[in-house]
Structures are given as structure tokens and as C-alpha cells.
Write a protein that binds this DNA or RNA. Structure first.
Length: 341
DNA sequence: AATCCGGGGCT
DNA sequence: AGCCCAGGATT
């Protein structure tokens, strides 16, 4: 028996479980096109628990497309600060403007996918949840569930390749009547039952359909190759003058992190690596890169390179520091004060 | 197809 | 420390 042959039974088992087991998330309680769009954008590469407080604050400040479209970009970014992937906020802002201007309003998946920040996953989510279009979402959860249901032991070269490999099956299995709930149920199952490390098969509502359940290596399905992590070092400057700190403003033309401020790179200031011990050494990981960032106390060159500015500490709240730099400046201000007194 | 964006949570 | 997460845009 294949999953396709048992499609109806699979769908109803999943739906029955979802009806009673789903988490009470704010966009489920009070659905609307706008709330669906915001929740899906916020949820990209972000765990639900992390985004919940942001979602509530966002809805309070920008309750609908019109309010969001009329807001300043600065205001929009302030409400996203700390969530990461800031292009999502810019795209959501652009999307709101496009939506307000659009006539007729987008409904079909294809129309949504033409909007900024909306790709295959998000367009399917919006079309199915808000407009009952029978299309399947294929995210990491869905890939994992389908690979296990079919006991697919192949090794995939990338996440993208795995998504591609399971899209057809996902489309075949999606429930025609209530695709939005079906899609959310699949993701809910992946998030709460079909866990990556320790799948909870004993309480799984669709264990009876699962060919992988008896496999000793179920927790290794699907196999997706990871890139080796690259290590790089970026030396940064901690330069103070009076009650101001030297920061670099990433140009609008940058495309990524445009308009945000960061601690200057020593290289951009044309300064050599100081002999002194750095004020702090920060490390962070972004996808497959591990970045080490020593921050040195330096005195700035007299002639500042382009896009470098002295920002008074009192004005820091009025600018957007890129995520980690915001934390570092707050933290190091205290450290630097202690060292100087 | 490869690379970049960023936090927090979890083991 | 390392890995993962309701991905998309750019090159």
C-alpha cells in the first residue's frame, strides 16, 4: 500500500489529530489575509516560539496592510529589530504598499509569488490558508515527514534538492477540501511529533501509514548533506570621541543590511591590527560560516572614510544597528566604562 | 547551483 | 560548540 492509495485515510487521520492537538497560535485564532501573510513572513527560518512576541507587537502597531503601507521604513525596521533577516521586514513593507495599490487584490498562488519576499513556500502557505487553493507547502517539516512515510533513504545534496524531490508527493497528498489546515497540520506534526532527533512515533496519528517507522535509523531520514563551515575573521574598531562612537552606515546600495549601522572594520579605517588585547572577541554563525570578530579600542583617523559617522550615545535609539552590533555596543559600553575608570 | 542573511533554542 | 529552524533573493 502506498501513501497515495491511502490518501483519504491519511488525510482524515491527520486532520482529526490537528483539530484537537494544534497549538493555539494568534493567527489561527483570528485569521485574516494580513495576519496570515505577516505570520508566514515572520516564521521563515525562525522558530514559532521566537517570533510570537514580535507578532503581537507588530499587530498592535501595524494592524492591517494600510497602516503598514503608510508607516516609515525606520518604524518598520524598529519593530523587526532582533528577529534577524531584515530583508523580510523591508519586503513585507513593500508588499503592503503593493497590496494596497493592487486591484484586484492578489488571490492565486501565482499572484502572491510575484510579490517581494514571497517564494514557493510562502505563496503556497498564503494561497492555501487564506484562499483555500489546493497547493502544498514543502518546508523542512514536510520533507522530513514524507521521507519517513516513504522510508526514503536517499542522500540529498542540499535542502533545495530535497524540497524538489518531495514536492510532487506533497501535491498529491494535499487535501482538496481544506488545504490550509492540511498544510498547517503537516508542519505542526513535524514541529511537535515527527521531530528530527527523537520522533515520537508512539503518539503519532499517522504512524500506521509510515513505512519508515520500523527502520532502526528513522532519526537519520532524510539524509541531507551539510556544507563544511568556513571560518573567517573580521577585525572591528571601538573608537570613542566625547560622548559619541564611530559607526559605519551600510550604504543603501548594499542590497543586504542596507541603511543599518555597524562597528567599523579596521580595514575600512585603514588601520593596522593593534598590538593591544581586543576589548572583546565575538563569534557568531551564519548558515555555514563561523565569523570571529575581535573588537579593538582605537583612535579614529582624522579623515573618516565614506559612510563612517560619529553617533552620540543618546542618538543610538534613533538608528538601526544591525542585530549583533546592537548587543555588542550595549554590552561593551559598560565594559569600556569600567576599564577607563 | 552557490552564497548570503541572524537570531534563539536545543543537545 | 555545533546543529537546527514555517526560505528567499541575488549572482
Amino acid at each position: 500500500m502506498s501513501l497515495i492509495q491511502q490518501q483519504k485515510e491519511f488525510q482524515s487521520s491527520l486532520a482529526e489529530w490537528y483539530a484537537q492537538a494544534q497549538r493555539p497560535l494568534p493567527w489561527r485564532k483570528k485569521p485574516s489575509v494580513y495576519r496570515t501573510v505577516v505570520s508566514e513572513l515572520m516564521a521563515q527560518q525562525t522558530q514559532i516560539k521566537t517570533m510570537l512576541p514580535y507578532f503581537d507587537r507588530w499587530m498592535h502597531r501595524f494592524p492591517d496592510f494600510k497602516t503598514l503601507a503608510a508607516a516609515s521604513e525606520e518604524d518598520v525596521l524598529k519593530h523587526w529589530e532582533g528577529l534577524g533577516y531584515y530583508s523580510r521586514a523591508r519586503n513585507l513593507h513593500k508588499l503592503a504598499k503593493a497590496y494596497v495599490a493592487a486591484s484586484p487584490k492578489p488571490r492565486a498562488r501565482e499572484a502572491w509569488q510575484a510579490l517581494p519576499g514571497i517564494g514557493p513556500y510562502t505563496s503556497a502557505a498564503i494561497a492555501s490558508i487564506a484562499f483555500h487553493e489546493p497547493v502544498a507547502v514543502v518546508d523542512g517539516n514536510v520533507v522530513r515527514i514524507l521521507a519517513r512515510l516513504t522510508c526514503d533513504t536517499r542522500t540529498f545534496k542540499s535542502n533545495g534538492e530535497a524540497v524538489k524531490a518531495f514536492t510532487a508527493l506533497a501535491e498529491d497528498v494535499v487535501a482538496e477540501e481544506n488545504p490550509g489546515d492540511h498544510n498547517q497540520a503537516m508542519m505542526e506534526l513535524g514541529a511537535t511529533i515527527c521531530l528530527k532527533r527523537k520522533p515520537l512515533c508512539t503518539i503519532c496519528p499517522v504512524a500506521g501509514f509510515c513505512l519508515g517507522r520500523t527502520s532502526a535509523e528513522l532519526d537519520q531520514i532524510p539524509k541531507i548533506q551539510r556544507k563544511a563551515t568556513k571560518r573567517i575573521t573580521v577585525e572591528r574598531a571601538w573608537a570613542l570621541e566625547g560622548n559619541a562612537i564611530l559607526l559605519h552606515r551600510i550604504p543603501e546600495s548594499a542590497g543586504q543590511l542596507a541603511g543599518q549601522y555597524e562597528l567599523p572594520k579596521l580595514k575600512d579605517l585603514h588601520l593596522p591590527t593593534p598590538k593591544t588585547k581586543p576589548l572583546a572577541i565575538k563569534t557568531r554563525s551564519i548558515t555555514h560560516r563561523r565569523i570571529k570578530e575581535p573588537i579593538f579600542v582605537v583612535s579614529a583617523p582624522k579623515a573618516l572614510p565614506d559612510d563612517h559617522f560619529w553617533i552620540r550615545f543618546n542618538d543610538l535609539e534613533n538608528i538601526t544597528l544591525s542585530g549583533p552590533h546592537r548587543r555588542w555596543v550595549g554590552e561593551l559600553t559598560k565594559v569600556a566604562n569600567k576599564q577607563s575608570t
